[in-house]
């Protein structure tokens, strides 16, 4: 030891070992991280408080009629409300959950577990990553030409079905990417052990890989669901109604799938627009924002509960 290090180095090491370390840079770094976290939380809090305060005129006095009300021309109308938007958004979420999630997760399982590692597979994966970055308006155009015009025999034209299919396609790349990352993160030992014990490929994936990857997959689906529920641009192209929707169907009324529709982001944009000629609409828009936030939080908490169950099971 003495032979290797010269005396200066030895002294320095001794000092380091015998005095209390003052890691200034480390302290600054942690402080910066905490500040970043605080800032992010602060922005969120300001947003929430601001929306609730602006919308309190409605949220505090007539939440019930606001939740069951419809699109109206005047903000003072006691039947003005978000029911049609909320029901539309609920069905869009159902479309995304039943179409984008199974297909996206299936594609991810195939890409990670079955697809040969060749140029074609890599090309497909690269394209899926690019698709996840395509602006949502472009998917709106796709939906307009494919579902509204091309398949109008199936979808009925500018209907909830067209919008739901468009949003399902919009989020599918995100589902594929997050799910395949989650599946890749499962240690190879899990499936190797299963295969070694004589399980088939499918058994290994079903009993070992998927349960272990489930929390990650659910996080991805949660993110993509939030994105789908908040999109307005593609819905405008597909033909969401802005002014007045004659029908006000119940939540579980399936006839509305092939009827004209509206959705929460559309309702919010329209009311912000209307506030130019009728100031009261800004309160309604803020209240609608709070309703949409609560809706998204409710959806997310379902996913979080599911994720926690999977996490505790796989441990």
């Amino acid at each position: 030891m003495v032979g290797i290090l010269d005396s200066r180095t030895r002294d320095r090491v001794e000092v380091r070992l015998n005095t209390r370390r003052r890691d200034l840079r480390g302290t600054v770094f942690v402080a910066a991280l905490q500040f970043a976290l605080l800032l992010a939380l602060l922005v969120l809090t300001v947003l929430l408080v601001d929306a609730v305060r602006d919308g309190w005129g409605i949220l505090g006095s007539r939440l019930g009629s606001f939740l069951s009300g419809t699109l109206r021309s005047g903000s003072a109308d006691p039947t003005l409300g978000v029911h049609q938007g909320l029901v539309g958004t609920f069905w869009l979420a159902v479309f995304v959950a039943t179409l984008a999630f199974p297909v996206g997760i299936g594609a991810a399982v195939y890409l990670v577990e079955y697809a040969p590692d060749n140029r074609f597979t890599r090309f497909v994966e690269l394209n899926i990553r690019n698709l996840a970055g395509v602006p949502s308006v472009v998917y709106g155009l796709l939906g307009l030409f494919l579902f509204v015009k091309g398949l109008d025999g199936f979808t009925g034209g500018r209907t909830l079905a067209s919008a739901g299919l468009t949003l399902a396609i919009l989020v599918m790349p995100i589902v594929v990417i997050t799910a395949s990352e989650a599946i890749r993160a499962v240690p190879a030992g899990y499936s190797e052990a299963a295969l070694g014990l004589g399980a088939t490929r499918w058994d290994a994936i079903r009993t070992q890989v998927l349960p272990a990857a489930a929390p990650g997959i659910l996080t991805g689906t949660l993110l993509s669901m939030s994105r789908a529920v908040g999109e307005a641009a593609p819905l405008i192209l597909v033909g969401a109604v802005t002014g007045r929707l004659g029908r006000n169907p119940g939540l579980l009324d399936t006839d509305q799938i092939t009827s004209k529709f509206t959705a929460m982001p559309i309702v919010i944009t329209q009311w912000v627009k209307n506030s130019g000629r009728d100031q009261g609409f800004s309160t309604a828009a803020a209240a609608a924002i709070v309703v949409l936030l609560v809706f998204v939080l409710a959806l997310n908490s379902v996913a979080i509960v599911l994720r926690n169950r999977f996490e505790s099971r796989s441990r």
Partner: peptide, 14 residues
């Protein structure tokens, strides 16, 4: 299939 199922439920078109 899903789109088709949807349109069967309602005769109302665009």
């Amino acid at each position: 299939a899903c789109g088709g199922g949807g349109s069967d439920q309602s005769a109302e078109g665009g």
